[in-house]
Write a protein that binds this DNA or RNA. Sequence first.
DNA 1: ACCTGAACACCGTTCAAGT
DNA 2: ACCTGAACACCGTTCAAGT
Lengths: 205, 205
Amino acid sequence: MANHTSSGSYHHGDLKNALLQAGEQLLAEKGITAVSLRDVARAAGVSHTAPYRHFRNKAALLRALALTGFVRLNGELAEVHVREKLGPERQLAETAVGYVRFAMTNPEMFRLMFGGMVTADGDAEYLAASQAILAWLDEIMRAGIAVGVFRDRDAGELAQVAWTSMHGLATLLMSGAMGISVADREQPGKLVRVVMQHIIYGLSR
Amino acid sequence: MANHTSSGSYHHGDLKNALLQAGEQLLAEKGITAVSLRDVARAAGVSHTAPYRHFRNKAALLRALALTGFVRLNGELAEVHVREKLGPERQLAETAVGYVRFAMTNPEMFRLMFGGMVTADGDAEYLAASQAILAWLDEIMRAGIAVGVFRDRDAGELAQVAWTSMHGLATLLMSGAMGISVADREQPGKLVRVVMQHIIYGLSR
DNA sequence: ACCTGAACACCGTTCAAGT
DNA sequence: ACCTGAACACCGTTCAAGT
């Protein structure tokens, strides 16, 4: 899809985006370990060396893919914000539910984003994308402090506590280490609410 | 190393353990994505097909490797328990520090254990190994409830909160998403203590 | 029982070459 | 500028064969 260039010839139109789209689909279908650069090129209908014109190597393509994941996650968290006008505690709880749901419904993307294949090491784009999540939580905590429901501590600190909790829930649930099978659709939401209730209790005054 | 069989011939002695040892070293040196089954066989001094006599495939070798990681982690957490006789709160905080330190000093092993390449899906051994961590935290929480420092709730629930928090800290720090470079040796410990302080506050009565 | 070597169908990456 | 095809040094896995 995307925009064709005006010329009728278009070798492929916008190969870069075509590759990212194909990559995202293959990621979801086959999993992070099974997706090859050659597969992506094949799915986009070009030779297996064509991607090198747009990405330095496979890692660069995966990095770009992870960034689209962050955009999507931030978008979903924003939706929670709009939908919920029920005060900071409820907002925090629902953000956690959304965060964990994103992880459970896009497990391979989530793994790509946080699993260590892509890292923030000197990557300003990645760092900015991930910090956007923290900024988001920071806003909730700040609002909660302002209306007196959260303890009057550094909002950034409280945001770190919140992020840590929902991220731990997501990663632990995905690994299956919690003893709750990934297939089970009901349990996760319940666990998230129970754990977040404790967290929120601790953050409240 | 390990035990030679009594016969002088010994094709390799105990190849299975030799492979696991070689695998652990290569994992730490080259990282999870770079370690190949052929590398492991090479390091153990056998042909690249020999491992198939002891492991069904590469995934099975990695799974066995992850299990040794769980044994090591549980051992380190046990050390914290013996060392600290300072009450449940302090014990929980130090357990979190130990948990995160394990992750930071054995990042590739930690990734292997929780990164999704190995999963609990119907794997009783993996589930038992990971549940041992939870049982461990459960004990701390139970003791804390008994002496009246923690809220009188289901100990398993409090243990899930605790595990979630330290695991979130570990994974978020490793990904670099927190904005704290992995190279920085001081910051992590500080962050862990700050976050755990909030968590413990919430768990306390 | 335990290990080897050839073989197969894949990889990621480089490079000269085509339009 | 953008893409192709051959080539290179790797993979994981299977299988007949050796001791």
